[in-house]
Design a protein around this nucleic acid. Sequence first.
RNA 1: GGGGUCGUAGUUCAACCUGGUUAGAGCACCGGCCUGUCACGCCGGAAGUUGCGGGUUCGAGCCCCGUCGACCCCGCCA
Length: 588
Amino acid sequence: MTEWKRSHKCGDLNKEDKGSNVVLVGWAARVRDHGGVVFISLRDRWGVTQVVVNPDNKDYNTAKSLHMESVIGVKGRVALRPEGQINKNMKTGEIEVIADEIVVLNPADPLPLMIAEESDASEELRLTYRYLDLRRPQMQKNIILRHKAAQIVRRFFDDNEFLEIETPYLMKSTPEGARDYLVPSRNHPGKFYALPQSPQTYKQILMIASFDRYFQIVRCFRDEDLRADRQPEFTQIDVEMSFIDENDIIDVVERLMQRLFKEAINKDLKIPFPRIDYNTAMEQYGSDAPDIRFDLKLDDLSDLVRGSDFGIFKSTIEAGGAVKGIYVPEMEGISRKNTDEITEFVSKYGAKGVITIQKREGEIVSPVKKYVGQELLQQIWNSFEAKESGVVFIIAAGKQVCNVSLGALRKKIAKDLDLIPQNEFALTWVVDFPLFEYDEDEGRFVAMHHPFTSPKLEDIDKLGSEPEKVMARAYDLVLNGTEIAGGSIRNYRSDVQEKLFEALGMDEETIKYKFGFLVEALKYGAPPHGGIAFGFDRLIAIMAGEDSIRNVIPFPKTTSAYSLMDGAPSEVDENQLKELGIMAAKQE
RNA sequence: GGGGUCGUAGUUCAACCUGGUUAGAGCACCGGCCUGUCACGCCGGAAGUUGCGGGUUCGAGCCCCGUCGACCCCGCCA
């Protein structure tokens, strides 16, 4: 093997190397057999180099019979390509290696999927043969970007006196929030560890331990259903600081983002990022993660239609709901079929339907014209400062449903009509969140962020009396309509923390059992502190221009949480279960 | 838990809507030709449990039911 130690990597050589004797190793990406001369595109992580094998070569037949993706070694001499044969699309396109000797280090069987820039293989196959999928240049690029980003993040925090400190993966289960992944304890049959949903409590404890500035690039686990942007295990950039307020965190994060985007993908970000309060985000964008790259803002028509006899408007207003709309100037018009599609789309979010208004030859056109009346429709049209064309979409529903469904429609239309500027990175802070939201199923208030978030100081008195009015010292960072980070200033006084737990419906005993250690720790000199955590996978996916975080995670799970390559999860030996004191319930 | 799209050769797709002789094509694979290609080209060949199970029918890749899997979405994700 040592004689096949490479002298260069496949992306190294250029015309300066003319005449050098080289040894290259890599994968035979393509073999082009011309009957006489044979060309091999030799690929490794760093690039592709063309190898030329002439008929007088002793290994000529080896070259002719190469299978795609076999691992080979080549000894040869660097030569300039003949006139007119330069490949401008290749970094090494000016040269080629004239082979003296070729050896197959490991032949490859026919492949279950092609190694191509644009994979046309199904995701199922890509995940089953992930090692082949990961050879694709696109995937290599994503994984390399991920590495780069992680290093930049580490350098940034190190430069700013943050300490990278590890926290346990085996921790206490706290059933607040997401479902825990449980790990049985062999030493204590019937007892379980949980894998962390995030290192939240540990990083707070580290602040109490006076480390002052902490960060960690850390795996987190949540046993919930999957999505394009949600995996059961995912990576956070976790950050916590002491003796700071919201603006200190925001400042650190803005400088981090600026440096990350510059150094990783050479994009200049303007700081500070704009801030929008939660309420405005919901009212204007119908989302707590507003995509500000395009307009189409939601307009409240409730006051305008208040006097209307039109049943849908009337009943909605009377029930305390909202009538809101968006105006899409770019839309030529809308057919019955499109309206049906949109109705179906918004119904997923609980809206009963959508009302359209458009103008045709100067005439207001709407399916509800005869019920609503020309005059009101015209007023609505005018309220949008609508031109002679375009379409207005109106949804009447309870406030939350109205905002969320119209917000979703806003995004869908922008996407369908291609109104979203590509290759643009729009970061915005969402601030002024409520501390609690009411959970209908549980019949109690739950923490909107998490139960360690500090209320705004002026709202502490309302914790017991009017929890719905308490605002949180929390902040989210949104990139192109996706939440990529969220954090808060924490409760550092045990009395406030206990009051908050009580507002969440926990009695003293429950508090002590679940979070007693934290409440106690707060009593021994806990500094004011706060922090933030990034969804690293989401951040990298957006930077890489990928729609799914699966494309920036080397070994992701499928939508049903399978690992197709290794077949996890799987059944285990009866003996393993016995040792753990576990019995699997029989499946129906 | 619910809704939607999809499942045909190693692979990507066609045939399905409107059931009917032998399920086609590109790439990969095998054989042949070709000395400047870079997604090389040309000629030929082999390759199929139409995801699985059931039903309807004289007859099912196609229609119906169930099931499994992939993907998207709602719920869920402090």
